[in-house]
Design a protein around this nucleic acid. Structure first.
Lengths: 361, 361
DNA sequence: CTTGCAAATGACACCGGTTTCCTATAATCT
DNA sequence: AGATTATAGGAAACCGGTGTCATTTGCAAG
């Protein structure tokens, strides 16, 4: 990969706009045109309450006529804070990130904020330093932190230290609920598992998520809870470790299907792995759902595109992203610091074609 | 959706860092500490050539000791240009955007640039105005424009007018090659089609992309060219229109499979639609590849996850993204304005399991 | 011993906002 | 009526860099 110097070479390019582009009006122009001082214009822009109604209207009139828009760079400098929302993630899952972005962007739409995406290397030694320099240099208004990074709450601590607003996404409400948008993974998985049980399954395999992921733990616990509740024992052999990837779903399934008797159903902790389960079943010539029922988690597009379409748990990640962003910028919408965006999102089971009662043998 | 006011309410929050955070050194500190003027420090930062070696080293020493980093906001204001690279797209395809982002981010890694993502509404009346205000307000360093937006080259014109660097992605080298990163869709599709022909197929259906998309046209023409080359006639009925979506792939396939005789193979202009073709075939109980061969385009993850895995054309979108970003920032790496990043990328056929010779009947 | 010229550096204005602090005027109180 | 406050608004500094232009210095040429 090219690794350009981090310092742009000196260029003697003219800083002014190319000829033909008329200069944008500045606060000075507005001040002059409306016969007031810069400060007064600034007050108008910032909705200052100590301002004569008449003056405000006059200035606003001029602003409208000229199409004046305050320069964000100047504001950022003066305020010591940018109008940028960061999204920090370590690439756990492409589709999830995209959905997350979509949610955030929906919330940022028609605001002055822009979204800056910042992937970091999971487990890299310099990760924390990278984030620190990103945060302090760019002076972000706030950041959304995606799991699994958030699992180790060092990042949250870092944000607190630096004084940067943040919201974490999580699979359960953690300690600092103020900065969290969470989903009820455990309950949702328990519900999905109960559904499998209600169909008559008792030998249900689990393709678990990676160790150290909070979501993996929550989902696994939900699975185990539902089985325990139904009085079904879960032998260790029915739990296979996965890495949230398609490939790991395949190999986990291979070990599960080598068992005798085979499980009649498999719950995979995300859709990627569920797709792997389906793929592995196909490779063995097993019919889904007749020979093997499958349930996934996320409801990413792939769930609806494979055959048979996957029964899965819909994780409202777009809504969560929107909520996270709104939490961050809520202070700017009104004076109310305490706008309470919902912070717990409910995942629901989507029944499609990958579950059937087990074959009688 | 919440639509917050675009003007943050006046807040009397202290602008200074919270207590405990030591202030970051500024250029003034460095100047004082190394006994030179601001301007000289600025020269050091910007690798100005007219600078005494000795002085430079002394200042650099101080910079290292203090961990000084220039404030991007101040630079942005003084320069009238931000260190942000924008990605403008109208959401043609989730996976593609993500891959694109990945490529751009790889190029931006270890530079001072950040990536700002900006989706716009395709076909919206205000689209051009949205982009204009985005570009002029944020004073982006440059933008990458994703198709199909770029098809109507108004955006390029807008960038020229505003004086913002840009790079367009395309399915063929268009008029302004200086600002393009392109792929050879036509040749790649022709190759894929020849492969189908070489397997013995002669009744090959096409699920085309939407009208008005350059890529759709290129791919269709490549398909037609390969058939013509082999002396195979293409009746109008074998071409079905699609919208690059899964659902459109399904309905296009339905019309194709209603034909009698049925096509023995279908080329879909992207993987999403190819997945739809596969899905529709499954719904009819057709075996793939034995009853129907399928070839897609893109090589998105879904191609490898369905069963059978799809033979498809790999579109090197990550590399294209990287190249696009490098093109934008190349001026900053060295004085050479003319760093020539490769601008034509070659797509190649990936053979997986969805193609077989047609059944003899 | 000037003069000329290039290299190295500094002084100062400027980018476009915000903040601090101060003044002028009007309204209220004794 | 005169003193006291609010209230509206302005002047100037500041945020942290960069651009312009002048100045200083060293050295070769006249």
């Amino acid at each position: 990969m090219a690794k350009p110097s981090s310092k742009p070479a000196a260029k003697s390019a003219p800083r002014r706009e190319p000829a033909g582009v008329q200069a944008k009006p500045t606060i000075n122009d507005i001040a002059r045109l409306s016969g007031v001082s810069k400060k007064t214009v600034s007050r108008v822009i910032n909705n200052s309450p100590l301002l004569n109604e008449e003056t405000r209207e006059r200035v606003e009139q001029v602003i409208r006529e000229t199409g004046y828009v305050p320069n964000p760079q100047a504001r950022a400098l003066a305020l010591g804070r940018n109008f940028l929302i960061g999204l920090i993630h370590d690439n756990p899952n492409a589709q999830m990130i995209l959905n997350m972005q979509q949610g955030i962007l929906e919330a940022l739409r028609d605001t002055d904020f822009e979204l800056v995406v910042r992937p970091v290397d999971r487990g890299s030694a310099t990760m924390l330093d990278d984030v620190r320099s990103f945060l302090t240099r760019q002076r972000l208004y706030g950041v959304v932190i995606l799991p699994p990074i958030s699992e180790n709450s060092q990042l949250a601590a870092l944000c607190n230290e630096i004084g940067c607003r943040y919201v974490r996404m999580g699979s359960a409400i953690l300690d600092d609920a103020d900065h969290m948008v969470a989903s009820n993974d455990r309950d949702a998985v328990a519900e999905a598992t109960r559904y499998l049980i209600s169909q008559g399954h008792t030998r249900i395999g689990l393709v678990a998520g990676p160790h150290g992921f909070r979501s993996a733990r929550e989902r696994r616990e939900g699975f185990e809870a539902a089985l325990a509740e139904a009085g079904i024992k879960l032998p260790r052999s029915l739990v296979a470790d996965g890495q949230y990837t398609f490939e790991s779903g395949i190999s986990a399934t291979d070990s599960l299907l080598d068992l005798s008797p085979r499980p009649t159903a498999i719950f995979a902790c995300n859709d990627e792995m569920a797709a792997g389960v389906l793929f592995a079943a196909r490779e063995r010539g097993l019919a889904v759902p007749d020979d093997l029922s499958i349930v996934g988690f996320d409801d990413t597009p792939i769930a609806a595109r494979v055959w048979p379409p996957l029964t899965t748990v819909r994780w409202p990640i777009v809504a969560m992203g929107r909520s996270a962003a709104l939490k961050l910028i809520s202070g700017t919408i009104a004076h109310a610091e305490d706008v309470t965006e919902p912070s717990l999102f409910i995942s629901t089971l989507i029944r499609r074609g990958s579950v059937a009662p087990p074959r009688k043998d």
